[in-house]
Each structure stands twice: as structure tokens, then as C-alpha cells.
Amino acid sequence: MTTKRKAKAAKAPDGPLPSLPQLCTEAADHVARARIALYDETLDADQALIHLDEAIACLKRLWAHGRARQAAPGPSLRSA
């Protein structure tokens, strides 16, 4: 990973945190863009890797959000 991408990945978002569905949508969008970059006529592997890195970052945020919810005290919702 280049230093630019590392710095971007480590930077905290300025605005409000996205919801879980927004994070899932963002990750799926990046995966779709990576597939397009690989299967398009241009075959841009670098662009595909950038999108896959962004998708992984989204999934890491999802994981961190889930871990924070598990650690939070108080009632939690359970499936029936």
C-alpha cells in the first residue's frame, strides 16, 4: 500500500459516521468498481486494488462498529 493510501485509510472521517447499511453499500460499491476495472477493456489493476482496499476499509469499520456494540453496556437487541 502506498503512503498516500495509508494516510487516507488512517484519516478519520470529518462528518457524521455512516450507518451500517451505508457502510455495506459503500463496500459493495467498491467491490463492483474493482470488478469493472478488472474486466473493462482497460484492465486497470491498480484502480481495482485501490477499490478493494477501500472495500476492506469499509468492512473494518463495520467490524469495529460491531465490536463497540458488543462492549457497550446496556440492553441489546437479539433475534427471536
Rank of each mutant, 00 (worst) to 15 (best):
74 G>P: 01
45 A>D: 07
24 C>W: 11
80 A>H: 14
16 P>Q: 13
30 H>R: 12
10 A>L: 12
39 Y>N: 01
56 I>E: 15
50 I>M: 10
63 W>I: 10
12 A>W: 02
20 L>W: 10
74 G>Q: 00
7 A>W: 08
45 A>N: 11
11 K>R: 15
9 A>H: 08
14 D>H: 08
49 L>V: 00
34 A>I: 00
5 R>Q: 13
42 T>K: 10
72 A>D: 03
79 S>D: 12
60 K>H: 12
6 K>F: 13
46 D>K: 01
21 P>F: 05
33 R>K: 12
63 W>G: 06
34 A>P: 02
62 L>F: 07
76 S>A: 10
32 A>P: 02
28 A>Y: 03
54 E>S: 12
77 L>E: 12
21 P>Y: 07
14 D>W: 06
18 P>N: 06
16 P>M: 11
38 L>S: 00
6 K>W: 07
27 A>Y: 02
14 D>C: 05
6 K>D: 09
17 L>H: 09
8 K>L: 14
79 S>M: 13
59 L>K: 07
68 A>G: 04
62 L>R: 11
33 R>N: 05
40 D>V: 00
30 H>F: 03
46 D>A: 05
46 D>N: 03
37 A>W: 00
18 P>F: 06
46 D>R: 03
12 A>F: 02
18 P>D: 09
3 T>F: 12
35 R>D: 00
62 L>M: 14
26 E>K: 15
67 R>W: 11
56 I>V: 15
13 P>S: 08
57 A>M: 03
35 R>F: 06
17 L>Q: 09
54 E>M: 12
35 R>Y: 10
59 L>R: 10
70 Q>E: 15
65 H>L: 13
48 A>P: 00
2 T>P: 10
66 G>C: 05
45 A>R: 11
76 S>D: 06
2 T>S: 15
39 Y>T: 02
75 P>S: 08
44 D>K: 04
8 K>C: 11
77 L>C: 13
